[in-house]
């Protein structure tokens, strides 16, 4: 569980606030996306969750505990944070050593480490990569290894910066389903992303940041249907929304969805009902 209460932050005293009065709360097992234009404060915000940055004002609570005094190395056991580019964190000779890095920093002994690494590798389906060098992996594999390597300490909170960056559709699908599975198993996941298609497909809750302030927080569909908000935040309108709108103009009872399968079901059901109403036969 993560709670921000009136958090404000500034990099330099004179400068404007990068975060102002940010308040929100995320429950255990939730999957949430932070969106907003570049420089809206998204990266600054997630750096507060594991103590890389400390609020100038306000309070950050993780599992109901104020983390102001907790060192980052301590927070690493509670929060896994992976940045946008896996190249910025991968460095070891083998994937196995990469996965060991976190536990080793915490002084966990070798036997225990071995077990942790095998567990996490199995969970992420990367056991076959363990002896390979992270530098020779494909982009998608590197992304998986980088996420696995921040989750080796049995953390219950995962924070990802632009996880779908540079991924093709197939990789995104795998990642999206994987995040869903983790959150179903009780992990709290926070994602920062520009990728509206990815968000609309896999992430149920969206929080919008604009100039360091939260301007909206709610169900993904509601947020993404707000054209004004979308424009102000330099986001894309999901392609399918236009389609949904045009269907709605013809069939007002049509419900909005952002997934093709659900749109198809919904549309076909309506068409069938209409046909029965009109008494048409087969």
């Amino acid at each position: 569980m993560i709670e921000f209460e009136n958090v404000s932050f500034t990099y330099k005293k004179k400068d404007e606030l990068v975060l102002r009065n940010v308040t929100f709360s995320i429950k255990k097992g939730e999957l949430v996306a932070f969106v907003g234009r570049n420089g809206a404060g998204k990266t600054t915000l997630i750096k507060h969750i594991n103590g890389l940055l400390r609020p100038a004002e306000g309070e950050v609570r993780v599992n109901t505990e104020n983390i102001i005094k907790k060192p980052i190395s301590e927070m690493a056991k509670i929060v896994g944070l992976a940045f946008q580019n896996p190249n910025h964190q991968l460095f070891a000779e083998t994937v196995k050593k990469e996965l060991e890095f976190g536990p080793k920093n915490l002084g966990i002994d070798e036997e225990e480490r071995e077990k942790i690494v095998l567990d996490i590798a199995k969970q992420f389906n990367i056991t076959h990569l363990l002896e390979r060098s992270p530098f020779e992996l494909s982009g998608g594999e590197r992304r998986l290894v980088s996420i696995a390597s921040v989750l080796t300490m049995n953390q219950q909170i995962l924070v990802l910066d632009e996880p779908s960056f540079g991924q093709d559709y197939r990789q995104k699908e795998m990642l999206g389903n994987y995040l869903k599975e983790l959150s179903d198993n009780g992990m709290t996941i926070i994602v920062v992303s520009h990728d509206i298609d990815f968000i609309s497909e896999y992430i149920p809750r969206v929080i919008v940041l604009l100039d360091g302030e939260i301007t909206a927080d709610g169900a993904t569909l509601d947020i993404l249907s707000d054209d004004d908000l979308i424009r102000k935040s330099d986001l894309d309108r999901p392609i399918l929304l236009d389609l949904v709108d045009s269907i709605k103009s013809k069939y007002p009872e049509f419900q909005s969805f952002l997934k093709e399968t659900m749109i198809a079901d919904n549309l076909l059901t309506i068409l069938t009902q209409e046909k029965t109403k009109k008494g048409g036969s087969m």
Binding site: T261, I263, A264, D265, L268, L271, T272, K275, T276, M282
Partner: peptide, 12 residues
């Protein structure tokens, strides 16, 4: 998707 599913709705 519609093409595939329309087969399940046999009243079309």
């Amino acid at each position: 998707e519609l093409a595939r599913k329309s087969n399940d709705f046999n009243n079309f």
